[in-house]
Design a protein around this nucleic acid. Structure first.
Length: 111
DNA sequence: AGCCTGACAGATA
DNA sequence: GTATCTGCCAGGC
């Protein structure tokens, strides 16, 4: 069985330049705001939601990972319960178990 | 250089 | 609301 991208995206345990850019953006998302995987890719200027997800699966623990959500507002699929707790703690605008993207989406400005 | 794998997203039924 | 399908692209092999 071969390792997936999530475990292969790094080399020598160090983030690739792309991974570092993704992490830098995620690290700046303010409390109460979120970005979708696709939003992060767009903001970084390369990659797609999939590649951002690959970075998050390997390095999520180093940043406010719960603030990266699905475009639908759905929480992090790896730890949805914990993600929801943290989002509520952040006072993120929610609609049930989904983030209200209209109110909570961060445009990358400020901070 | 080519193939493969994804913590995605939009379109469609 | 759900289920499929298709395009996407970085990175490891």
């Amino acid at each position: 069985m071969s390792a997936g991208l999530a475990t292969r995206i790094v080399e020598g345990g160090r983030p690739t330049p792309y991974a570092a850019e993704v992490l830098a953006v995620v690290d700046r998302i303010p409390r109460g705001k979120v970005m979708s995987y696709g939003d992060v890719a767009e903001f970084v200027g390369r990659g797609t939601g999939r590649t951002v997800g690959a970075v998050m699966s390997r390095y999520g623990h180093e940043v406010p990972w719960h603030r990266v959500v699905q475009a639908s507002g759905g929480p992090n699929p790896a730890s949805p319960e914990e993600a929801l707790r943290r989002l509520r703690r952040d006072r993120t605008p929610m609609r049930g178990d989904r983030v209200d993207m209209r109110l909570a989406r961060w445009d990358g400005r400020g901070r």
